[in-house]
Protein backbone atom coordinates (compact mmCIF):
# COMPACT_ATOMS: atom_id res chain seq x y z
CA UNK A 1 0.00 0.00 0.00
CA UNK A 2 1.42 3.36 -0.94
CA UNK A 3 1.51 6.29 1.44
CA UNK A 4 -1.12 8.02 -0.65
CA UNK A 5 -3.71 5.26 -0.31
CA UNK A 6 -2.87 4.85 3.36
CA UNK A 7 -3.63 8.51 3.87
CA UNK A 8 -6.89 8.11 2.00
CA UNK A 9 -7.87 5.14 4.14
CA UNK A 10 -7.18 7.13 7.29
CA UNK A 11 -9.23 10.05 6.00
CA UNK A 12 -12.09 7.65 5.33
CA UNK A 13 -12.13 6.75 9.00
CA UNK A 14 -9.69 3.85 9.13
CA UNK A 15 -6.82 3.48 11.55
CA UNK A 16 -3.77 5.71 11.28
CA UNK A 17 -1.15 4.26 8.96
CA UNK A 18 1.63 4.66 11.49
CA UNK A 19 2.04 1.57 13.61
CA UNK A 20 3.09 3.49 16.73
CA UNK A 21 0.59 3.32 19.58
CA UNK A 22 -1.18 6.49 20.59
CA UNK A 23 -0.61 8.29 17.31
CA UNK A 24 -3.47 10.50 16.21
CA UNK A 25 -4.07 11.88 12.76
CA UNK A 26 -2.85 15.49 12.71
CA UNK A 27 -6.03 16.62 10.95
CA UNK A 28 -8.40 15.33 13.62
CA UNK A 29 -9.56 16.90 16.88
CA UNK A 30 -7.86 20.25 17.57
CA UNK A 31 -5.82 19.60 14.44
CA UNK A 32 -8.94 20.02 12.35
CA UNK A 33 -9.34 23.57 13.63
CA UNK A 34 -5.62 24.18 13.09
CA UNK A 35 -5.87 23.02 9.45
CA UNK A 36 -8.78 25.43 8.92
CA UNK A 37 -6.87 28.42 10.31
CA UNK A 38 -3.68 27.49 8.41
CA UNK A 39 -5.67 27.19 5.19
CA UNK A 40 -7.11 30.68 5.74
CA UNK A 41 -3.60 32.07 6.26
CA UNK A 42 -2.25 30.18 3.26
CA UNK A 43 -4.88 31.74 0.99
CA UNK A 44 -4.72 35.19 2.62
CA UNK A 45 -0.92 35.55 2.62
CA UNK A 46 -0.36 34.06 -0.83
CA UNK A 47 -3.06 36.01 -2.64
CA UNK A 48 -2.22 39.27 -0.89
CA UNK A 49 1.47 38.90 -1.75
CA UNK A 50 0.65 38.05 -5.37
CA UNK A 51 -1.57 41.12 -5.71
CA UNK A 52 1.14 43.33 -4.20
CA UNK A 53 3.87 41.83 -6.39
CA UNK A 54 1.73 42.26 -9.52
CA UNK A 55 0.49 45.80 -8.82
CA UNK A 56 3.21 47.61 -6.81
CA UNK A 57 6.30 45.46 -6.44
CA UNK A 58 8.75 48.44 -6.51
CA UNK A 59 7.20 50.04 -3.41
CA UNK A 60 8.36 47.45 -0.88
CA UNK A 61 9.93 44.44 -2.62
CA UNK A 62 11.36 42.92 0.57
CA UNK A 63 8.05 43.05 2.43
CA UNK A 64 6.10 41.57 -0.49
CA UNK A 65 8.60 38.77 -1.14
CA UNK A 66 8.59 37.92 2.58
CA UNK A 67 4.79 37.79 2.51
CA UNK A 68 4.97 35.44 -0.47
CA UNK A 69 7.45 33.26 1.42
CA UNK A 70 5.12 33.26 4.43
CA UNK A 71 2.30 32.20 2.12
CA UNK A 72 4.32 29.24 0.82
CA UNK A 73 5.21 28.20 4.39
CA UNK A 74 1.51 28.31 5.34
CA UNK A 75 0.61 26.20 2.30
CA UNK A 76 3.25 23.59 3.24
CA UNK A 77 2.05 23.54 6.86
CA UNK A 78 -1.56 23.05 5.73
CA UNK A 79 -0.61 20.19 3.40
CA UNK A 80 1.59 18.60 6.07
CA UNK A 81 -1.15 18.73 8.69
CA UNK A 82 -3.76 17.17 6.39
CA UNK A 83 -1.50 14.21 5.51
CA UNK A 84 -1.50 11.39 8.01
CA UNK A 85 1.84 9.98 6.88
CA UNK A 86 5.11 10.39 8.76
CA UNK A 87 6.33 12.54 5.85
CA UNK A 88 3.33 14.83 6.29
CA UNK A 89 4.15 15.17 9.96
CA UNK A 90 7.78 16.04 9.16
CA UNK A 91 6.67 18.58 6.55
CA UNK A 92 4.26 20.22 8.99
CA UNK A 93 6.91 20.31 11.75
CA UNK A 94 9.47 21.89 9.42
CA UNK A 95 6.94 24.43 8.16
CA UNK A 96 5.82 25.40 11.67
CA UNK A 97 9.44 25.75 12.82
CA UNK A 98 10.32 27.88 9.78
CA UNK A 99 7.24 29.96 10.46
CA UNK A 100 8.21 30.53 14.10
CA UNK A 101 11.75 31.55 13.15
CA UNK A 102 10.41 33.75 10.34
CA UNK A 103 7.81 35.59 12.38
CA UNK A 104 10.23 36.20 15.26
CA UNK A 105 13.03 37.40 12.95
CA UNK A 106 10.88 39.57 10.70
CA UNK A 107 8.84 40.79 13.66
CA UNK A 108 11.93 41.92 15.55
CA UNK A 109 13.54 43.48 12.47
CA UNK A 110 10.37 45.42 11.68
CA UNK A 111 10.24 46.80 15.23
CA UNK A 112 13.96 47.67 15.36
CA UNK A 113 14.20 49.22 11.89
CA UNK A 114 10.92 50.39 10.42
CA UNK A 115 12.59 51.60 7.21
CA UNK A 116 13.29 48.00 6.23
CA UNK A 117 9.59 47.47 5.61
CA UNK A 118 7.93 50.51 4.02
CA UNK A 119 4.76 48.44 3.62
CA UNK A 120 3.38 45.74 5.89
CA UNK A 121 4.39 42.13 5.45
CA UNK A 122 2.39 39.31 7.01
CA UNK A 123 5.06 38.82 9.65
CA UNK A 124 5.91 42.46 10.43
CA UNK A 125 5.46 43.46 14.07
CA UNK A 126 4.83 39.77 14.85
CA UNK A 127 1.75 39.65 12.65
CA UNK A 128 0.06 42.78 13.99
CA UNK A 129 -2.10 43.12 10.86
CA UNK A 130 -3.44 39.61 11.45
CA UNK A 131 -4.40 39.87 15.13
CA UNK A 132 -0.93 38.52 16.10
CA UNK A 133 -2.08 35.06 14.99
CA UNK A 134 1.13 34.53 12.94
CA UNK A 135 3.14 34.34 16.17
CA UNK A 136 0.59 32.17 18.02
CA UNK A 137 -0.09 29.69 15.18
CA UNK A 138 3.37 28.06 14.87
CA UNK A 139 3.52 27.54 18.64
CA UNK A 140 0.09 25.89 18.57
CA UNK A 141 1.11 23.87 15.52
CA UNK A 142 4.28 22.52 17.12
CA UNK A 143 2.41 21.81 20.35
CA UNK A 144 -0.24 19.86 18.47
CA UNK A 145 2.28 17.94 16.37
CA UNK A 146 4.05 16.84 19.56
CA UNK A 147 0.85 16.03 21.41
CA UNK A 148 -0.68 13.96 18.62
CA UNK A 149 2.49 11.96 18.06
CA UNK A 150 2.61 8.33 19.09
CA UNK A 151 5.59 6.37 20.36
CA UNK A 152 7.01 5.64 23.79
CA UNK A 153 7.75 9.14 24.92
CA UNK A 154 4.86 10.99 23.30
CA UNK A 155 2.53 12.71 25.78
CA UNK A 156 -0.41 10.61 24.55
CA UNK A 157 1.43 7.40 25.32
CA UNK A 158 2.73 8.66 28.66
CA UNK A 159 -0.84 9.54 29.62
CA UNK A 160 -1.99 6.07 28.63
CA UNK A 161 0.74 4.37 30.64
CA UNK A 162 0.25 6.59 33.66
CA UNK A 163 -3.48 6.01 33.43
CA UNK A 164 -2.95 2.27 33.68
CA UNK A 165 -0.30 2.52 36.36
CA UNK A 166 3.44 2.13 35.97
CA UNK A 167 4.80 0.01 33.12
CA UNK A 168 5.57 -3.58 34.04
CA UNK A 169 9.09 -4.28 35.38
CA UNK A 170 9.80 -6.43 32.31
CA UNK A 171 9.66 -3.23 30.27
CA UNK A 172 6.92 -1.55 28.26
CA UNK A 173 4.82 -3.55 25.79
Amino acid sequence: MTTETAAEAATAGGTPPEGTPGTRRTASGPGRLLVAVYAVFAVAATSRALVQIITKFHEAPVAYLLSALAGVVYILATIGLTRSSAAGRRLATAACAAELVGVLTVGTLSVVDRDLFPDEAVWSVYGQGYFFLPVVLPALGLWWLRRSRGGRFAPATVHRLVGRGAPSPRGPE
Partner: peptide, 20 residues
Protein backbone atom coordinates in the same frame (compact mmCIF):
# COMPACT_ATOMS: atom_id res chain seq x y z
CA UNK B 1 -15.92 25.95 6.32
CA UNK B 2 -19.18 24.00 6.61
CA UNK B 3 -17.74 21.17 4.52
CA UNK B 4 -14.61 20.92 6.67
CA UNK B 5 -16.70 21.35 9.85
CA UNK B 6 -19.19 18.50 9.24
CA UNK B 7 -16.35 16.18 8.16
CA UNK B 8 -15.67 15.49 11.82
CA UNK B 9 -18.44 15.33 14.38
CA UNK B 10 -16.54 16.83 17.28
CA UNK B 11 -16.14 20.03 19.25
CA UNK B 12 -13.26 21.12 17.00
CA UNK B 13 -15.29 20.29 13.91
CA UNK B 14 -18.04 22.61 15.12
CA UNK B 15 -15.54 25.39 15.88
CA UNK B 16 -14.31 25.28 12.27
CA UNK B 17 -17.60 26.82 11.10
CA UNK B 18 -17.12 29.58 13.69
CA UNK B 19 -13.72 30.36 12.17
CA UNK B 20 -15.31 30.52 8.71
Amino acid sequence: GAWWAVGERSRSGTAVLGVA
